[in-house]
């Protein structure tokens, strides 16, 4: 164990963990974050705070993570390579750690043209694997340039993996690269295609990667068949099984069906060897999280160390 992250402690203890995710507000609204914290406190073990997700401007993930701490929720600060160069990324890590943030999720970031400033310049100074390596180096007391620092952070380092995108063999190879660079936990894209996920997790187990990093499988409650169709058509690298489309289409109450599918998925993932937890991504539907965790039989959550 390297950090004071509660998430890490639970994973080390062998608990099946539950993460949530919230989008910071598109405005200077701290109260919005505190309100969303009410849906997550004592319901999940840690919550992702996204970093300008889908390249749409929102409150910074650093400050949102700090507000989440105030709201009694352990944050997982997302940090992308799209908007900041290696200097800014390292200074954000230092600041966030000093403020009490203990988990960081390193991502490349969605391309600018998907968001609301398609005319922006993308930075992409580092890629996500290099960013993971950078944070791992900082944990050991070194900046990326090799210079040493007096008071290093001790972050629990995460990254992403997409089991559903092509080419399959590179997905496994890149996961290994990230682990070698210092990644300790992985969050995946939402699972809507079990045959593909099972194939991926088997390959992960065969390589032994599930013992080197904790695999947290993504799940997403959806409100309508439209949301699934949108993901299938417009989110590259996503795979949706026809079964779910049919179920959502023929459901009398699509919202209820969405919850049912999500709960079923979590229960199945819990039984899947190699999976150490789930990451619930209720996009714009954070309020449903407590119900999903409860119906999945994952409440109460193990008592954690209080977020500092």
């Amino acid at each position: 164990m390297v950090s004071e992250s509660n998430l890490e402690r639970l994973l080390t203890d062998g608990q099946f963990v539950v993460c949530g995710e919230m989008s910071p507000p598109q405005g200077a609204d701290k109260a919005a974050i505190l309100k969303k914290c009410d849906y997550f406190r004592n319901v999940v073990d840690a919550v992702n705070l996204t970093d300008n997700q889908t390249a749409i401007v929102r409150m910074s993930s650093v400050m949102s993570s700090v507000f989440a701490l105030e709201g009694g929720v352990e944050p997982i600060m997302q940090i992308t390579c799209r908007d900041r160069n290696r200097l800014a990324q390292q200074s954000d890590i230092l600041g966030a750690y000093a403020a009490g943030v203990r988990n960081v999720l390193c991502l490349t970031g969605d391309y600018m043209t998907f968001g609301n400033h398609p005319d922006a310049k993308g930075v992409f100074d580092l890629d996500s694997v290099q960013l993971i390596h950078t944070v791992a180096d900082m944990n050991e007391g070194r900046f990326l340039c090799g210079e040493e620092m007096k008071t290093p952070p001790r972050m629990f380092i995460g990254g992403a993996a997409n089991p559903f995108a092509e080419p399959f063999d590179l997905r496994i190879m890149r996961l290994g690269k990230k682990i070698h660079a210092g990644m300790r936990f992985v969050q995946t894209q939402p699972v809507f295609d079990f045959p593909r996920f099972d194939r991926w997790i088997k390959a992960v187990r065969d390589e032994g990667y599930d013992r080197e990093a904790y695999i947290l499988a993504g799940v997403m409650p959806v409100k309508s068949v439209k949301a699934l169709d949108y993901m299938r058509e417009s989110v590259p690298g996503m795979s949706i099984d026809d079964e779910y489309i049919d179920r959502m289409k023929s459901a009398d109450d699509p919202k209820e069906e969405g919850v049912r599918i999500c709960v079923e998925t979590i229960k199945r993932l819990k039984e899947t060897p190699g999976v150490s937890g789930v990451h619930i991504m209720p996009v714009m539907w954070e309020s449903i999280t407590p119900r999903i965790v409860e119906e999945s039989g994952l409440l109460p959550r193990p008592a954690g160390g209080q977020p500092e």
């Binding site: 391309y111 694997v129 992403a160 795979s239």
Partner: peptide, 14 residues
């Protein structure tokens, strides 16, 4: 487009 030297990103299409 993202100049990833340790690729690929998660967005490769089917």
């Amino acid at each position: 487009p993202k100049q990833i030297r340790n690729g690929p990103c998660g967005g490769t299409r089917a």
